[in-house]
Design a binder for these strands. Structure first.
Length: 109
DNA sequence: CGTATGACGAGCC
DNA sequence: AGGCTCGCCATAC
């Protein structure tokens, strides 16, 4: 299949699998892609993302369960609209909301 | 091709 | 607990 598999595309493919109401961390996504220390690269990919791509970028938080992007207000609203509850300190309980990982049934294509 | 940058993360002070 | 530094890695220039 067309190898559009640039590293960015790989990131998007994983992020797109995160279900509504769940979140994932940069490092977590990186691990799923096989980059033990590529968390920053995941951030780069999401940053390069333009609007209307359909990629649920807002479901990505840092290891502390906090928003790392500039437009925090928007991201929090998007998550809350999916049922994610933020703590008073502006973080989310990863124990509760962190996604388990890509389904083993997800076809790699 | 070397340097700088960044939506990270773990460690150290 | 909070802030700073350093390591990692794909892009940008």
């Amino acid at each position: 299949m067309h190898k559009l598999n640039s590293d960015f595309e790989q990131v998007y493919q994983v992020v797109r699998q995160i279900p509504s109401g769940k979140v994932a961390t940069y490092g977590q996504v990186a691990l799923w892609l096989g980059w033990p220390h590529g968390a920053r690269t995941v951030g780069w990919a999401l940053r390069a993302l333009s609007e209307g791509t359909g990629v649920p970028w807002h479901r990505i938080l840092n290891a502390q369960g906090r928003i790392s992007q500039a437009d925090e207000e928007l991201q929090q609203e998007l998550l809350e609209s999916e049922g994610v509850i933020f703590r008073p300190d502006g973080s989310v309980d990863l124990k509760q909301y962190q996604w388990d990982g890509p389904s083993l049934f997800a076809d790699p294509t």
